[in-house]
């Protein structure tokens, strides 16, 4: 009887151990949230430019991931957010916005007209880029 009891305890212990191990080994991801505010006087289109741990260092290897906009176009005075996720265990990543304003003469947008500088982002960061004009913005 005690042999059976010990066996049962062994198996229960094994399951608990496996469950604990699997919880401990669970993948975690880093997350940062970036916002953009259109403080200019024209509608805007934008994309996020995201360089995460997958990118190589050489220029030919550099991966700049293009994060699609949440809204298109972004009306005057309004804001949007993007959620960025990258591998857990990796430190910071770089992020910038590329954006363009409505060009009435051509009735079009060019999202690559202007861009912000790359900002270093850490896990849990929340940053908002306020775009005041084609070459003026601030981050808080």
């Amino acid at each position: 009887m005690s042999m059976k009891k010990n066996l049962n305890l062994f198996f229960i212990g094994l399951i608990v151990f496996a469950a604990l191990c699997s919880t401990g080994c669970a993948v975690r991801y880093n997350h940062a949230r970036v916002g953009i505010v259109n403080n200019y006087d024209k509608n805007m289109v934008y994309v996020g430019l995201f360089i995460d741990e997958q990118s190589g260092d050489a220029s030919g290897d550099m991966i700049v991931k293009v994060a699609p906009p949440a809204r298109r176009p972004l009306p005057v005075g309004e804001r949007d957010y993007l959620d960025l996720v990258w591998g857990g265990g990796y430190g910071s990543v770089k992020f910038a916005f590329s954006f363009g304003f409505y060009d009435a003469s051509e009735d079009s947008y060019n999202v690559y007209d202007c861009s912000t500088d790359y900002l270093e982002l850490e896990e849990g960061d929340e940053k908002v880029f306020r775009i005041d004009s084609t070459d003026d913005y601030f981050v808080n």
């Binding site: 994309v47 293009v66 699609p68 906009p69 949440a70 298109r72 363009g100 999202v111 690559y112």
Partner: peptide, 11 residues
């Protein structure tokens, strides 16, 4: 149009 990319909602 890469110059005017579609939104995440459309995707």
């Amino acid at each position: 149009d890469p110059r005017n990319p579609i939104s995440q909602t459309e995707l």
